[in-house]
Amino acid sequence: MNSVSALFLDYTFQTVALGSALLGLISGVLGSFAVLRKQSLLGDGVSHSALPGVVMAFVLLGSKKTEVLLMGALISGLLATLFIVGVVRHTRVKFDSALALVMSVFFGLGLVLLTYVQKIPNSNQAGLKRFIFGQASTLLQRDIILMIICGLVLLSLVLLFWKEFKLFTFDTDFAQSLGFSSKKLNLLLSFMIVLAIIIGLQTVGVILMSAMLIAPPVAARQWTNKLWIMVTLSALFGAMSGITGTAASSLVPKLPTGPAIVVCVSIIVLFSILFAPGRGVLYRIYQRRKNKILYKLEGGSPDVPSN
């Protein structure tokens, strides 16, 4: 217990834990909309596709500052999204194939650029590879400030357009018939989701980022039937896993932070799917048992109620 309290007083730990918590919170909120729009895997595509942007930004601007690299990531993430949408719109190739193709090609381009950078004299590219696996321990105070600013912008946009996002996610055609431009809403929401992915990259890396976008909302959905509670819970689950994962990796030697966070959030998902009241797997098994006994007692199967 002593080591735990000592840990929470440690400055480096505070920084990293705060960063991971912020990541969980932001991706929990935006991930809710991605999951409800059935675009869960877009996050996987965007995060893989961010790699060439990171390296490109480094090559062109020669800077390893987080905001520069993330700007590159944002541009190539958006570019990949455009490609995917373009291929789906103009050919008979389906969304999943376009996604898989574009993300793996972009990732390959990222690798090509990385090996190219290695040959540039006097360039230490160690800071770049952290984007593949993520390295929470390299989070600096200024990274946290950047995350806070982006997070605040994203959260206030969600609050501001709450009504519109809810309507648009539930029933796009109806939203359009009420005069809300679905083109504009789609653009805004997609951009916000991509931004949320990008700011999480340096903590958990491109491969695991998709989990942070999908798992918290999936877990939260099991506990409530209200959108605002789902989004709040999702943010909470994300932040909780961020802190727990960071703490676990600080206390246990040789436990990488990103995977530790993902394992935490996955445990929350499995727990929710099994045990959520009124919806979870166990509740349903119990309900089925109870019904069976009831049928037996009453003899034969009961009439199906009309309402």
Binding site: L36, K163, E164, K166, L167, F170, T224, N225, K226, I229
Partner: peptide, 21 residues
């Protein structure tokens, strides 16, 4: 979708409200 009956019916009023309100 995580919404109640009332949430969905309320969406009918969104057109009159316009953006943000």
């Amino acid at each position: 979708f995580p919404a109640t009956v009332q949430d969905v019916v309320l969406m009918g009023c969104y057109g009159k409200l316009g953006w943000i309100r």
